[in-house]
Amino acid sequence: MEFVDKILKCVDCGNEFVFTAGEQLFFHDKQFRNDPKRCKLCKAKRASGGSAVRAETRTTCSECGHETTVPFKPTQGRPVLCRECFQRKRIVPVAAQQPPATL
Protein backbone atom coordinates (compact mmCIF):
# COMPACT_ATOMS: atom_id res chain seq x y z
CA MET A 1 0.00 0.00 0.00
CA GLU A 2 1.41 3.41 -0.97
CA PHE A 3 0.76 6.51 1.11
CA VAL A 4 0.99 10.16 0.04
CA ASP A 5 0.97 13.30 2.21
CA LYS A 6 -2.52 14.62 3.02
CA ILE A 7 -3.57 18.12 4.08
CA LEU A 8 -5.96 18.01 7.06
CA LYS A 9 -7.69 20.74 9.06
CA CYS A 10 -7.23 20.98 12.85
CA VAL A 11 -10.53 20.82 14.77
CA ASP A 12 -9.18 23.12 17.51
CA CYS A 13 -7.38 25.97 15.74
CA GLY A 14 -8.70 25.49 12.18
CA ASN A 15 -5.20 25.57 10.64
CA GLU A 16 -4.19 23.10 7.98
CA PHE A 17 -1.48 20.55 8.75
CA VAL A 18 0.26 17.78 6.83
CA PHE A 19 -0.48 14.16 7.63
CA THR A 20 2.69 12.71 6.15
CA ALA A 21 3.01 9.40 4.34
CA GLY A 22 5.24 8.17 7.17
CA GLU A 23 2.63 9.06 9.77
CA GLN A 24 -0.03 7.32 7.68
CA LEU A 25 2.15 4.20 7.50
CA PHE A 26 2.53 4.30 11.30
CA PHE A 27 -1.27 4.69 11.73
CA HIS A 28 -1.80 1.79 9.31
CA ASP A 29 0.70 -0.45 11.16
CA LYS A 30 -0.98 0.32 14.51
CA GLN A 31 -4.39 -0.34 12.91
CA PHE A 32 -5.66 3.13 13.80
CA ARG A 33 -8.87 3.68 11.84
CA ASN A 34 -9.18 7.51 12.00
CA ASP A 35 -6.94 10.28 10.70
CA PRO A 36 -5.61 12.73 13.31
CA LYS A 37 -7.93 15.64 14.13
CA ARG A 38 -5.42 18.08 15.65
CA CYS A 39 -2.19 19.69 14.51
CA LYS A 40 0.96 18.94 16.50
CA LEU A 41 0.80 22.22 18.45
CA CYS A 42 -2.84 21.71 19.55
CA LYS A 43 -2.15 18.05 20.31
CA ALA A 44 0.78 19.07 22.55
CA LYS A 45 -1.33 21.73 24.32
CA ARG A 46 -4.08 19.21 24.92
CA ALA A 47 -1.66 16.59 26.25
CA SER A 48 -0.07 19.03 28.70
CA GLY A 49 -3.40 20.37 29.90
CA GLY A 50 -2.40 23.73 28.40
CA SER A 51 -5.18 26.16 27.67
CA ALA A 52 -7.98 24.16 29.26
CA VAL A 53 -8.93 26.79 31.84
CA ARG A 54 -12.09 25.98 33.71
CA ALA A 55 -14.68 28.72 33.76
CA GLU A 56 -15.79 29.65 37.27
CA THR A 57 -19.44 30.58 37.82
CA ARG A 58 -20.47 32.85 40.69
CA THR A 59 -23.53 31.58 42.58
CA THR A 60 -25.09 31.36 46.04
CA CYS A 61 -24.79 28.23 48.19
CA SER A 62 -28.16 26.49 48.64
CA GLU A 63 -27.29 25.46 52.22
CA CYS A 64 -25.62 28.45 53.93
CA GLY A 65 -26.48 31.28 51.51
CA HIS A 66 -22.87 32.47 51.10
CA GLU A 67 -21.69 33.64 47.69
CA THR A 68 -19.28 31.15 46.10
CA THR A 69 -17.79 30.10 42.78
CA VAL A 70 -18.17 26.67 41.20
CA PRO A 71 -16.23 25.11 38.26
CA PHE A 72 -19.41 24.34 36.28
CA LYS A 73 -22.57 26.03 35.06
CA PRO A 74 -25.33 25.24 37.58
CA THR A 75 -28.50 23.56 36.33
CA GLN A 76 -31.68 25.40 37.26
CA GLY A 77 -33.65 23.68 39.99
CA ARG A 78 -30.68 21.74 41.39
CA PRO A 79 -28.95 22.78 44.62
CA VAL A 80 -25.43 24.23 44.44
CA LEU A 81 -23.16 23.95 47.47
CA CYS A 82 -20.07 25.89 48.49
CA ARG A 83 -16.92 23.90 49.22
CA GLU A 84 -17.53 23.74 52.99
CA CYS A 85 -21.16 22.58 52.69
CA PHE A 86 -20.22 20.09 49.98
CA GLN A 87 -17.49 18.57 52.20
CA ARG A 88 -19.88 18.45 55.17
CA LYS A 89 -22.53 16.62 53.07
CA ARG A 90 -19.93 14.09 51.86
CA ILE A 91 -18.71 13.28 55.38
CA VAL A 92 -22.06 13.03 57.20
CA PRO A 93 -23.65 10.23 55.09
CA VAL A 94 -20.52 8.07 55.41
CA ALA A 95 -20.54 8.40 59.21
CA ALA A 96 -24.29 7.72 59.35
CA GLN A 97 -23.87 4.44 57.44
CA GLN A 98 -21.40 2.94 59.89
CA PRO A 99 -22.96 0.69 62.56
CA PRO A 100 -22.61 1.90 66.16
CA ALA A 101 -19.67 0.50 68.08
CA THR A 102 -20.55 -2.26 70.55
CA LEU A 103 -18.83 -2.73 73.88
Rank of each mutant, 00 (worst) to 15 (best):
Met1His: 13
Phe3Ser: 05
Val4Lys: 11
Val4Asn: 09
Asp5Ile: 03
Lys6Ser: 02
Lys6Arg: 12
Ile7Leu: 11
Lys9Leu: 02
Cys10Ala: 10
Cys10Met: 08
Cys10Asp: 05
Val11Ala: 14
Asp12Lys: 15
Cys13Asp: 02
Gly14Ala: 06
Gly14Ser: 03
Gly14His: 07
Phe17Cys: 08
Val18Asp: 03
Val18Lys: 12
Val18Trp: 13
Phe19Leu: 07
Phe19Tyr: 14
Thr20Ala: 08
Thr20Phe: 07
Thr20Gly: 13
Ala21Arg: 11
Ala21Gly: 12
Ala21Cys: 02
Glu23Trp: 05
Gln24Ala: 03
Gln24Asn: 03
His28Cys: 05
His28Gln: 07
Asp29Lys: 09
Asp29Ile: 09
Gln31Lys: 14
Arg33Lys: 12
Asn34Gly: 05
Asn34Ser: 11
Asn34His: 13
Pro36Leu: 09
Lys37Ser: 12
Arg38Tyr: 07
Lys40Glu: 13
Leu41Phe: 07
Leu41Pro: 03
Lys43Tyr: 08
Ala47Thr: 10
Gly50Met: 04
Ser51Thr: 07
Ala55His: 10
Glu56Lys: 14
Thr57Lys: 04
Arg58Gln: 12
Thr59His: 09
Thr59Phe: 02
Thr60Gly: 04
Cys61Ser: 00
Ser62Glu: 04
Ser62Arg: 08
Cys64Ser: 01
Gly65Val: 00
Gly65Met: 01
His66Glu: 11
Thr68Gln: 05
Pro71Phe: 04
Pro71Arg: 06
Phe72Tyr: 15
Phe72Ile: 02
Phe72Trp: 06
Lys73Glu: 06
Thr75Lys: 10
Thr75Phe: 02
Gln76Pro: 07
Gln76Met: 07
Arg78Asn: 12
Pro79His: 12
Pro79Tyr: 03
Arg83Cys: 05
Lys89Glu: 08
Arg90Gln: 14
Arg90Ser: 10
Ile91Trp: 05
Val92Gly: 00
Val94Arg: 15
Val94Cys: 10
Ala95Glu: 11
Gln97Met: 15
Gln97Leu: 15
Gln98Phe: 08
Gln98Glu: 09
Pro99Gln: 15
Pro99Thr: 09
Leu103Ile: 13
